[in-house]
Design a protein around this nucleic acid. Structure first.
Lengths: 331, 331
DNA sequence: AAACTTTACGAAAGTGCTTTCGTAAAATAA
DNA sequence: TTATTTTACGAAAGCACTTTCGTAAAGTTT
């Protein structure tokens, strides 16, 4: 491998000058810079990031952490989208992205081994001891969907979106609007329920605890079961706002199994806008999470944090209401 | 940050001995090892991977490359699954995973900068000059879905799976079986078509070129259009084997739009088993790609390659036929 | 012309680790 | 016992950079 020494020799300068040229110090004359860069190109010289990191104590590496015992990995629609956007943005700023796994020595120590400049904790689970260690350490961190102490958080504006959802359904003349709530251990589950209640109040609709069913997971089976329980009510809802698309799909199935139809008999509204949403029958009216904006904001926040600039501790990104076939006007 | 010098001092030994202990050389007495490890634990010492890499010329880093102008990124169901499995496996073997982007200096140079020990090219596009440079360099590489010279390839057994598909449909008494083929620029597109033809031959069914329609992308719109063209045939098929699930979804929509029903009028079979597949109406009969096995095999192959062991240049992983609602017996 | 400032560069120390090689001491063989 | 091998360890060089500081030479100011 070609190193600075060789470049220096060919250029007739010292390695110090080569280094300064590569890093664009201004104390090198333009003439010398040009001469050096020419040789750099000819030889195909590239920096050795390990040597650089050793010397500067900066790796230009961003770590990605996700709790492994949640089996939400790369395949999760929301997180993979956020991650993709995040990655693009930090790469534009000159960083590379490395996965940090907690094997053997735990997340924190692994971060130290790799010398990452900052980390994005994608899916946190605060019962994960290793994650808490990381959060409590002095490494710049950002996260989404899991609030922790002084760690900057960027996520969807669940409350406002839920208010929007209720308003939208009321606008379609629905007054008996139910909510299939997510696990109350997660912030999105809690906030979407809160938004639903606030929305009902805003619309001057009565809040009926029986019109809230709980999905204990963010999946379709949970949605199916929750919908079933709502259907057992003597006066079932004419519209249901569901905590996520997957559960909404389950809810639609429950409606069909009860010999009814969505949206003919009951309107269904989801959250997320997963790929599936536009392909189901009926396609889903839903709130689209702005994965791109969340990812980019996380990236900017983290880089600022690394550079010791001021950052917002909480950033809420608006969702967009996507109207499709699963909701319709109540006659 | 704590370094070996501090550990050495506290243990009353030289840094050389600490290094040898950490790396489990046998020339250190068990006694000394124990003493050193105790101090390592107490101080919370961790290795500095940059320094180590600088010295050993091994980074224990695996690079992930995917062509950016295909907009298949992390969000792609198949690739994210393969990547997840790959990642798990290499992590188990002591490597970490870093994304390599082609910005500024191209993939190859970036690989050299980071000193990756090997790279997994996830989605290749041989029109990508930077990728070809990488393939032609001396860095250990594996890939899926894009054959290249001497680069080991691990992917689904498209031909055999397609033969299975035709056999299965024939087993349901279908004799007029069409194929919606994928882009013939991709190996999977070509091989699935090849398998379809071979399957028809095996089943002693006539091959009719009019019974092959081409989807120019792996998406639902292309499937929709292809199906439409098949329906225009005076004697349309009773079953269609579609190159991928997404296109299959499009095909089903086309059938519905023609006032027919799948599988009542036409059976549809997909490929992939994406998440969507079990949620559509009707749910999709399909060939499940073994993303896990593909990812793991890629990992093992790459590590072997790094260690200069022998590897297979091509590994085909079987698919599994998943029977759901979109196919039925022809009466 | 003298005094001062700026510019352009290099020597060398430092970054944290690995690994070779040398060498005492201990263990074994003769 | 002496000769030989083995064991256990350390000194030091090397890995490819960055950065401080010193210093000539050139430029600027009085």
């Amino acid at each position: 491998m070609i190193d600075m020494k060789q470049v220096a020799k060919l250029a007739g300068v010292s390695v110090a000058t080569v280094s300064k040229t590569i890093n664009n110090y201004r104390e090198v004359s333009d003439e010398t810079k040009a001469k050096i860069m020419k040789i750099v190109d000819e030889l195909g010289y590239v920096q050795n990031s390990s040597a650089r990191a050793l010397s500067t104590k900066r790796s230009n590496l961003i770590g990605i952490v996700y709790s492994e015992h949640l089996h939400i990995g790369l395949e999760h629609y929301f997180f993979s989208g956020v991650l993709e956007a995040f990655k693009k943005e930090v790469e534009n700023l000159g960083y590379d992205v490395v996965f940090i796994n907690g094997r053997d020595i735990g997340y924190l120590k692994k971060c130290r081994v790799r010398g990452v400049d900052g980390v994005f904790v994608v899916t946190a689970e605060t019962s994960d001891k290793g994650l808490v260690d990381l959060f409590n350490a002095d490494i710049p961190c950002v996260t989404t969907d899991t609030p922790w102490n002084k760690i900057p958080l960027v996520y969807s504006d669940n409350v406002q979106s839920s208010i929007d959802a209720v308003k939208y359904l009321h606008g379609l003349n629905h007054t008996r609007i139910a909510h299939i709530a997510g696990p109350q251990t997660s912030i999105s589950g809690r906030e979407r329920l809160e938004g639903y209640r606030t929305g009902m109040k805003h619309e001057n609709l009565p809040y009926d605890p029986n019109m809230v069913a709980y999905a204990n997971e963010y999946d379709s089976t949970s949605g199916y079961n929750a919908m079933k329980s709502l259907l057992e009510h003597p006066n079932p809802p004419s519209a249901v706002y569901v905590v996520c698309d997957l559960s909404a799909v389950g809810a639609i199935k429950a409606i069909r199994d009860a010999n009814m139809r969505a949206p003919r008999d009951i309107s269904i509204m989801g959250f997320d806008d997963i790929q599936l949403a536009s392909h189901t029958v009926p396609s889903l009216t839903t709130l689209r999470q702005d994965r791109d904006s969340i990812g980019r904001t996380l990236a900017c926040t983290l880089i600022k944090l690394i550079n010791k600039e001021e950052v917002d501790l909480v950033t809420k990104i608006p969702c967009q209401l996507i109207e499709r076939e699963s909701t319709k006007v109540k006659k």
